[in-house]
Design a binder for these strands. Structure first.
Lengths: 170, 170
DNA sequence: AGGTGATGTGAATCCCGGTTCACTTCTTGG
DNA sequence: CCAAGAAGTGAACCGGGATTCACATCACCT
């Protein structure tokens, strides 16, 4: 809190005129920042295209934004935080999942995707995206990364699409 | 530490004869327990069967063990912990990923799976499994679960298999 | 039995950073 | 211009729990 106050150019006590506790301050910050990310992804999920195309766009948006602001993405996805902030993170992930669930639902209705639980699939997609990104995003990540950025993005998108699409030979 | 000591029937100071700090004690416990889980999954990954069958077996093992011991699984996968334990958790996940990467590599070699980065795919699989399980495992999970256990398992396994397999119409 | 090192004990210490609060400074309506 | 409330200040406080340590006990050897 001392650092935050100094950074904001105010005294520590001043923070408590605006936020009841450290946890709530941090949770609020998380909420705002996460909201922007969600908006960007939600925008990518819209449009008149097929579900597959939109899913591809969502995954690309998610990955590219994360790689463009790795520190932020790491904070949003993986960094250890107060329980209150962790709760906010859960909401954040669920929101992503909700967007993806709609998308998967559309795909099933269009018969682009085989029957499946949209919620479960959406959750799995969020898990895939988050986990594959944790490596590259981690502050002490080994550079150079194992895969060049383009290849990484393309392969991860492929994994997402295949996960919700029909297989060729079962 | 007081609780741990009481539970073990020793004085608090005694713990420090065996472990240098709380974090290292917890990390050691995590290591041991995680080791057992890894062993179980590694066993499921072996055998003469096709990569797809083995992958299915791994996913089922992972899911079933998690659901059978939800509190433990939650602690291993998601519960907020000391940074030192978090580091151990990272190792744990990487170990799973390594097992799966071998498996995916086998599948590619057998031409059962299309070309892909085994490491990336394996990481994605770990992410899918962990994320889909966090919901059901979470201590304050809404019961009854959205999906019956059998259906949940089957659908999650299907997601895993599809993610690494070829799509029917690209 | 006596000595020596390992192990056990648990109350006291210590540290740390979030939080408080008595006081000052600013803002605004009359 | 003057209350009177709002907002700002920052040094001091405080709680909690990990850690310590002076002492007791034990195990094992000669």
């Amino acid at each position: 809190m001392q650092i935050v106050a100094a950074d904001a150019g105010v005294a520590t006590g001043t923070i408590y005129r605006h936020f009841p506790s450290k946890a709530e301050l941090f949770a609020t910050v998380f909420q705002r920042v996460a909201g922007q990310e969600v908006d960007a992804v939600a925008a990518a999920a819209g449009g008149p295209d097929s579900a597959a195309i939109r899913l591809q766009r969502v995954a690309e948006t998610f990955i590219q934004r994360a790689l463009a602001a790795p520190r932020l993405a790491y904070a949003l996805l993986a960094e250890p935080v107060d329980p209150l902030v962790e709760a906010e993170r859960l909401v954040f992930r669920r929101t992503y999942a909700a967007i993806l669930a709609d998308l998967v639902g559309d795909g099933i209705r269009q018969a682009a995707f085989p029957p499946q639980s949209p919620d479960l699939s959406a959750t799995a997609l969020v898990g895939m995206l988050a986990e594959t990104l944790v490596g590259p995003l981690s502050p002490q990540a080994a550079d150079p990364p194992a895969l060049p950025v383009n290849e990484f993005t393309q392969q991860t998108v492929a994994l997402c699409l295949r996960a919700v699409s029909a297989r060729s030979h079962p």
